[in-house]
Computed example of a mutant assay.
Amino acid sequence: MMSEFLLPVPVLIIDHQSMTSKTVLFNILGDLGYPEDLITFSENLADAEQQIFNQLPNLIFLVVTQQSDISFIHKIKKIYPSSNLIILVNEQSADLTLHAIQLGATAYMLIQQPIEDTYNQLKTILRGGAALHPTFAKFLLSETFSPQNAAPKQLSLNPAEYQILDMVSHSATQEQMVNELKLSTYQIDGFVKNIYRKICSYS
């Protein structure tokens, strides 16, 4: 299959807790145009660190289920700051997702979700967009961001960003947002990515 976008390669999938189905993710990457010889796996953080140092993968998937996994993001970004890092998280781990994005994660996807959703979200991410789910959207709407040495303040959203976040928090589909907000899919993806950038500004 020919890819419709430029694919960042090589790819490293880090799952030191065996939380994901490697076959499913491998097949999705193959369907998107990734050559199998450019996809590697690691089930050990020490091995993953060595692979990053030696191979400089342009796309890294990291399973994040606890705070110590967040610490590993520091190592990834220290070794290869420009790498595209996608974290795989549980839906209820909104706080870990927030911290990972603040540390430089490009995007996140859920560990447990339908294969079709994973496929579509990865396509969106590779086009420059980002995923957003109801639980994380609700968390962002309620969370107070407090930069170090600054007074606590809410995440500053423009009206379109707030509307999108609010609609996602109520489980609106992208089609519903397109129809109600009179925006294109690409415009919505752009606003979601802007929300990510604003999250990073509060790190």
Rank of each mutant, 00 (worst) to 15 (best):
Ser156Leu: 08
Ala151Phe: 05
Lys123Asp: 00
Glu143Leu: 08
Asn149Arg: 06
Lys153Glu: 07
Lys153Asp: 01
Leu132Val: 04
Thr135His: 06
Gln154Tyr: 04
Pro147Ala: 12
Leu155Pro: 00
Ile125Asp: 09
Lys123His: 06
Ser142Val: 03
Leu155Tyr: 07
Ser156Gly: 04
Arg127Pro: 00
Lys138Leu: 11
Ile125Glu: 06
Ala150Asp: 01
Ala130Gln: 02
Pro152Trp: 07
Leu141Lys: 14
Gly128Arg: 15
Pro134Glu: 03
Gln148Glu: 09
Thr135Gln: 09
Pro134Lys: 12
Gln154Glu: 05
Gln148His: 11
Leu157Met: 12
Gly129Ala: 10
Arg127Met: 15
Arg127Asn: 14
Leu155Phe: 09
Leu140Asp: 02
Ser142Glu: 03
Ala150His: 05
Asn158Val: 03
Thr124Trp: 02
Asn149Phe: 06
Ile125His: 10
Leu140Pro: 01
Gly129Ile: 05
Gln154Asn: 06
Pro134Gly: 09
Gly128Thr: 13
Arg127Ile: 07
Pro152Gln: 10
Gly128Leu: 15
Leu126Asp: 02
Gln154Leu: 13
Phe136His: 08
Ser142Trp: 00
Ala130Tyr: 01
Ala150Thr: 04
Ser156Asn: 08
Ser156Arg: 07
Ala137Thr: 03
Leu157Ala: 10
Leu157Cys: 10
His133Ser: 11
Asn158Leu: 04
Phe139Asp: 00
Ala131Met: 12
Gln154Phe: 11
